[in-house]
């Protein structure tokens, strides 16, 4: 009995230390999304100027094919970092990417895509207060959602997509979902 009392503090300390050590390696931005396995929120977003009539993004556009929905903005610095990867995905034809231009000046958003390249099939504008982004549970830009053929959100990635994240994490999920009827 006495021996237990001596060992107990060490055990408690070790367990706590292991928890905290694990906590140090976690990213506090990775908040589990509650939208996984839920249908894409109802939306009907206007197109960016100069991208043509009917190039906006609506809920029905996300049915039929597995696609990536990317939250971006011309003001968003990490989006610049992610941009070459999105262009490469488009070049290889891995999967269709749709954009939501979040809290942005539409003219600035269009100009940015014109200048640095446009990886998107459809782009919808979500002006402040960003109702659609809130419906998606967006906490910042960039954020990307994998939407399956039925228009159901299946995966959420927070932060810029690197070529490695794309090939090792996102693309395998997309390929898997594409196999489903």
């Amino acid at each position: 009995m006495r021996r237990i009392l001596y060992v107990l503090p060490v055990v408690v300390f070790t367990v706590l230390a292991l928890f905290f050590l694990k906590g140090l390696t976690l990213n506090p931005r990775d908040i589990p999304s509650v939208l996984i396995d839920r249908p894409v929120p109802e939306m009907s977003l206007a197109p960016l100027p100069g991208r043509g009539e009917g190039s906006g993004l609506a809920t029905k556009d996300l049915k039929g094919r597995v696609s990536l929905v990317n939250i971006f903005g011309s003001w968003c610095i990490s989006c610049v970092q992610e941009h070459p990867t999105l262009m490469e995905i488009k070049r290889r034809g891995d999967a269709p990417i749709h954009g939501i231009d979040w809290r942005d000046d539409p003219v600035a958003g269009a100009a940015w895509l014109k200048k640095s390249g446009d990886p998107y099939e459809r782009v919808g504008i979500d002006p402040p207060p960003g109702r659609t982004a809130v419906d998606f549970g967006v906490t910042g830009a960039p954020e990307s959602f994998i939407v399956d053929k039925a228009g159901v959100i299946r995966y959420k990635h927070v932060g810029p997509i690197s070529p490695e994240i794309w090939s090792k994490t996102l693309l395998p999920i997309i390929r898997q979902l594409e196999k489903a009827p």
């Binding site: 506090p28 207060p129 910042g140």
Partner: peptide, 20 residues
């Protein structure tokens, strides 16, 4: 506030907090 994480949306100046 999902951006600052330890502030409420009432306290935070972040854009997302304002939206919420």
């Amino acid at each position: 506030c999902l951006v600052c994480q330890n502030q409420s949306i009432d306290d935070s100046d972040a854009d997302l907090a304002k939206d919420l």
